[in-house]
Design a protein around this nucleic acid. Structure first.
Length: 756
DNA sequence: CGGCATTTTATTTTT
DNA sequence: TAAAATGCCG
């Protein structure tokens, strides 16, 4: 095989030793994906292993897709038969096939995090508990944590550790909520993300015939990003591979960044105990980055106590030192990054796609976005609010989901009064409570709604039931696109959006059309055998934005969180927002006290770069709507000074120019804060109002009125057409030159009034 | 029940 | 800050 000649000895060992348990510890940039790809190709071409009997698990759909394509290039269309995908998607597929064994319908709904949290909220209220004590996020992560450790609600309630922890935290009802949550999901015919793994474990534990079937099928099991697996995932694969013992895991403990989701580095350590004759292969040569970047990253990760012995090195050139940019505000940070990209593009003949801007939180993307737009640099933001999480999309999906699964409580709640049909909150509560008390599904209650509802509401519910029934009939006769388009129209959703002529409304309408297009594409896809709506809906909850890559026009600067940059590489990487509390994240340190995970995250960010890393921090930044002083991140100091280039002596405790030192834009920022406070109260309801504007100097604050010419940081120039006051929400309708008419909420609108 | 005004809140990463 | 929750009235 000629591809073997490109490999170094340990890589080659990883590709050629196919039998028995294997662990590949792969340092950053060491060609891990290449080894995994070739290994699978080798199994198929050299060992003549049927692709059907190879199971390869990844963490993102994108990684799976990419790997499948690379393998297809070597082995041809055979690669399509591989069992390759995320843990969640592969086991969702198996669970659908075996659902009856667990008492679930095979078309069970998958609840995303939002569904789960809103169900938890409803439960907490119904139980008469204080939702400030039992916050949905806290309850959700508690339940999720239990499930990921394979602790059922029964075990939870009998477990003295969990129970006493809850009592300590003044949350004694946690177990009861967990129980109710599980039962409600079950009655709704729904599984949340964690259930997909938890229930797979239950399936394999209680149904040995089923386990046996899959054990026989999967002769070779491979796991990518093994450092990010949790106990639940690990046990599934352990069970599956216990017959053939051909399990190969690939990972890097230094890049474990999902402990918050239950990932467990212990898995790597335990692996050696579980498989005494384990073959361990270390890939330590880095082919991606320059000496300076590798060294800088190594010097950082050295501060972590918990790690496996590994020596990542490279033969590449020294390259540039790590740069550090300092700015006075988040907006200036954006401008500096944009101009730096502009210069490097010219000087080094680089393309937009060679650059990545990485940040800790999605909300940081905005300042970057505005700066790039002003500099006319094309960019693409990855992640953030996913297409599938937009309200209008979730609304239509809820209709589709409910048509398929009539007992799905969360979808029911979403659509029962959308568009308005006179069924309010109290009616919904009565229906849900009735289902609960009689141990019935939502659908059973709906069909006999006159028993629990007054006439007017009961009639409305009857109409709703008839509507859903007509959708159901359609589903059985037509393909996914026909049905979805029919439902979008007949439900009234499309009309409601169509009637909304605001820009936002137009956008929403287009989004729904886009979803319909996606379904059309799904139907037209020749590789897709099952074209039913059920088949389309089955996995949408598991999709993320990164999955709909647009092929055309892909020369753009990449903006994403560090988490979503895992597995990617770029020539120049900007790591922005290098500030204490932001990175390392205050939240993370408060809730889990895990500085080491944040440090690994920093390591991941550094090692994405091939040629150059630029760190950046701002002295002031808007956070939660307030301007805050910031302190440079401790991580900057942790880089060995030999590999970083700092303008002047760097001293974290006395950052240059804070809000009190009286210089330039700092003072401006300070004024702005004071100004905002008074202004907010001072504006009387009426036609005229003030417009504070963080992007422009304070002297620009004037009274806005119709006919004025204004500039908006996002939409450019425009003219005020109409002013409107709606309680605290002061609004202006502005005709923008390039974006048309828009109605803006002016409470904090960033408008500059142009000179007459 | 629906619509609008006003207040509160959540502020981390992803399947 | 924006979104979500709550409160009030017809």
């Amino acid at each position: 095989m000629d591809y073997l000649s490109h490999l170094n000895p340990p890589q080659r060992e990883g590709v050629e030793n196919l039998e028995g348990p294997t662990m590949i510890i792969a340092g950053a940039g060491s060609g891990k994906t290449r080894v995994l790809t070739y290994r699978i190709a080798h199994l198929i071409t050299v060992k003549n292993v049927d692709p059907f009997s190879i199971l390869a698990l990844t963490f993102t759909n994108k990684a799976a897709k990419e790997m499948r394509e690379r393998i297809e290039k070597i082995v041809g269309t055979d690669a399509r038969n591989l069992w390759m995908g995320t843990f969640h998607s592969v086991f969702a597929r198996i669970l659908r096939a075996e659902a009856d064994k667990l008492g679930y319908p095979s078309n069970f709904t998958i609840y995303d995090t939002e569904d789960s949290k809103s169900l938890i909220r409803a439960i907490v209220r119904e139980m008469g508990l204080d939702d400030k004590v039992y916050k949905q996020n806290v309850v959700y992560s508690r339940i999720s944590g239990a499930k990921n450790n394979l602790v059922s609600w029964q075990n939870y309630m009998n477990n003295s550790v969990y129970v006493s922890e809850d009592e300590q935290a003044q949350k004694p009802k946690m177990g009861a909520i967990y129980k109710e949550y599980v039962q409600r999901c079950f009655r709704s015919g729904a599984m949340d993300f964690d259930d997909l793994l938890f229930n797979t474990n239950v399936l394999f534990r209680d149904h040995l015939d089923v386990l046996n079937k899959y054990q026989q099928r999967f002769k070779y099991v491979m796991i990518d990003e093994f450092q990010d697996t949790n106990i639940s995932q690990y046990l599934i694969t352990k069970r599956l591979s216990s017959v053939h013992q051909n399990i190969c895991v690939v990972g890097d403990d230094a890049q474990s960044i999902y402990a918050f989701r239950g990932a467990n580095i212990q898995n790597i350590l335990n692996f050696e105990k579980d498989y005494p004759d384990l073959r361990v292969i270390k890939l330590e040569q880095n082919y991606r980055s320059t000496q300076n970047i590798v060294n800088a990253a190594n010097s950082v990760i050295l501060k972590n106590a918990a790690q496996l012995k590994k020596n990542v090195w490279t033969q590449n050139d020294d390259g540039e030192l790590v740069h550090l940019i300092k700015s006075t505000s988040d907006n200036e940070e954006g401008r500096l990054v944009a101009s730096s990209i502009f210069e490097d593009k010219n000087n080094k003949k680089l393309e937009n796609k060679d650059f990545a801007i990485l940040y800790r939180t999605n909300s940081q993307s905005r300042a970057m976005e505005e700066a790039l737009r002003k500099s006319s640099i094309p960019y693409r933001i990855y992640g953030g609010l996913s297409f599938y999480q937009r309200k209008e999309i979730k609304d239509l999906l809820a209709y589709l989901r409910f048509t398929i699964n009539h007992n799905d409580e969360q979808s029911f709640r979403r659509i029962i009064n959308l568009p308005k049909r006179g069924i309010g909150a109290s009616s919904v509560d009565k229906i849900v409570v009735s289902a609960f008390e009689n141990d019935l599904g939502i659908w059973d209650v709906l069909q006999k709604s006159q028993r629990v509802l007054p006439n007017r509401a009961a009639n409305a519910v009857d109409n709703f039931v008839t509507l859903i029934k007509s959708f159901k009939i359609r589903i059985e006769r037509a393909d996914a696109y026909d049905t979805a388009a029919f439902i979008a129209k007949q439900s009234g959703l499309l009309k409601e959006l169509y009637d909304d002529k605001t820009i936002e409304g137009l956008n929403r309408y287009e989004n729904v059309q886009e979803l319909l297009n996606a379904i059309k594409e799904f139907v037209d896809d020749e590789q897709q055998e099952d074209k039913s709506l059920e088949a389309f809906i089955a996995d949408v909850a598991l999709l993320t934005d990164a999955d709909n890559e647009d092929q055309d026009n892909n020369d753009h600067v990449n903006l994403m969180t560090i988490h979503s940059a895992k597995g990617l590489e770029f020539k120049h990487v900007f790591i922005v927002g290098m500030e204490e509390d932001l990175f390392p994240s205050q939240m993370m340190l408060n809730s889990r006290a895990d500085l080491e995970e944040e440090r690994r995250l920093f390591y991941v960010a550094l090692t994405r770069a091939m040629e150059k890393v630029t760190l950046s921090y701002a002295l002031t930044r808007y956070r939660f709507g307030r301007l805050k002083n910031c302190e440079p991140s401790r991580f900057i100091e942790e880089i060995d000074p030999a590999y970083i280039k700092v303008d002047r002596k760097f001293n974290r405790s006395e950052p240059m120019g804070n809000l009190n030192n009286g210089s330039g834009s700092s003072v401006y920022a300070k004024n702005l804060v004071a100004q905002r406070k008074t202004e907010r109260k001072a504006v009387p309801p009426g036609k005229k109002l003030h417009t504070p504007s963080p992007d422009f100097a304070p002297s620009d604050t004037r009274t806005l009125d119709t006919g004025m010419k204004v500039e908006h940081p996002k939409f450019g120039f425009g003219e005020v057409k109409k002013m409107d006051v709606q309680g605290a929400n002061r609004k202006a309708t502005i005709e923008f030159e390039n974006f048309g008419e828009k109605t803006l909420l002016l409470t904090f609108a960033k408008l500059r009034i142009m000179e007459d």
